[in-house]
Design a protein around this nucleic acid. Structure first.
Lengths: 193, 193
DNA sequence: CCAGTTTTGCATTGATCAGTCCAAAATAGG
DNA sequence: CCTATTTTGGACTGATCAATGCAAAACTGG
């Protein structure tokens, strides 16, 4: 009962996510959030309580989206090394479009570990990302495409660090060739030799 | 002539840099800058014109400091690969203390390429950093400690990306062991085999 | 069609934002 | 000691910040 919402909550979070992604938390005013989502202040505060809460929801939305995309991407890879090749290529292709980097990376840079609620999301997302890559590394060591000299978890940390490096290069406006060189070298570090 | 300044301009910029480093540009109010520097508003505006101008000065200060530290660090290395090993070790040791990451990295994440004046500083600093590392890579290929399969410039881009990845790991509060694993794998990527 | 419930638009809140103004204070040159 | 010049502290500016209040609007169950 009661008056029904005139907007789709998920879509609104998506728009808010885009705004935060582009300008950061402090750099995005509630007014800007109203314009980005097309909602009035009342609707935003009635639904999301506060700017901080909306940011957390946007961060969760981003993390879920990323997790889903990565899972889909890696599922289609035949070998372990192909997972990492595809991951780097996807990172470059996806990011070179808008050059907005990664919301998680930007958020880490903006907040550090100052905000416990946000840190918890960052940590959870990082752990999930790294453990997915750990599985890829282990798979690659089984199928002979990835060097067995390093532990799968270390390889995953390394690949994760490389992806964040690429995201930052993109946000900075680095040349595609430079990004591809980084990806190529990262691959040689983990490939079977 | 006129009343003399009661403070050291360089020291004030250093304090402002620390504040921006910790909280970012948008997250650091002019009030916070007064408290960090110990100056009154008048002194700040009389000397630095605007918050933006002070930020640019702080960024320059940070970049110079970094350039000096890196040059000093790399000068003491015997071989090419030692340069990179020392660079990664320094990044981990230096950053693990305060876990504030890197002002340049944080600034890239906050601004992207939205602010031309800031972008120009970022680009210049990145170019200087990468070209220093390019020289290390070339040196390493000459002295036989670095793999010749890749171009020195690509190796430099890769190492630079690794350093930014490490800086972000630190800001996020990653475990030291994970950071060391990343550094170790990056080294195996470029070492002669 | 009415009572109860929720959403919405708009005005408004007090706090804080970056930046300015001004008069007192502190110097140097004459 | 006087004048010109600069710095300094502190009050002040209008704008914008995140968040709230309130009443009209829009629905559902009865």
């Amino acid at each position: 009962m009661g008056r029904p919402k005139e907007f789709d909550e998920r879509a609104a979070i998506g728009r808010a996510m885009e705004a935060f992604w582009e300008r950061g938390y402090e750099g995005t005013s509630t007014q800007a959030l109203c314009e980005a989502t097309g909602l009035g202040r009342s609707s935003i505060y009635n639904t999301f309580t506060s700017k901080h809460e909306l940011f957390v929801r946007a961060l969760d939305h981003y993390a879920e989206r990323g997790q889903r995309d990565r899972a889909e991407l890696l599922e289609s890879c035949e070998t372990g090394i192909e997972c990492f090749r595809a991951l780097f290529a996807y990172t470059i292709d996806d990011d070179i479009q808008g050059r907005r980097g990664c919301l998680v990376v930007n958020t880490v840079a903006e907040f550090g570990d100052r905000d416990p609620e946000i840190s918890a999301r960052i940590d959870a997302d990082t752990r999930r990302h790294v453990s997915l890559l750990t599985a890829c590394a282990a798979e690659g060591q089984r199928d002979g495409t990835i060097d067995t000299a390093h532990r799968p978890g270390d390889i995953a940390e390394f690949a994760h660090s490389t992806v964040t490096g690429l995201r930052l290069m993109s946000r900075r406006g680095a040349e595609r060739a430079a990004m591809e060189a980084v990806a190529e070298l990262a691959l040689t570090a983990i490939a079977a030799r």
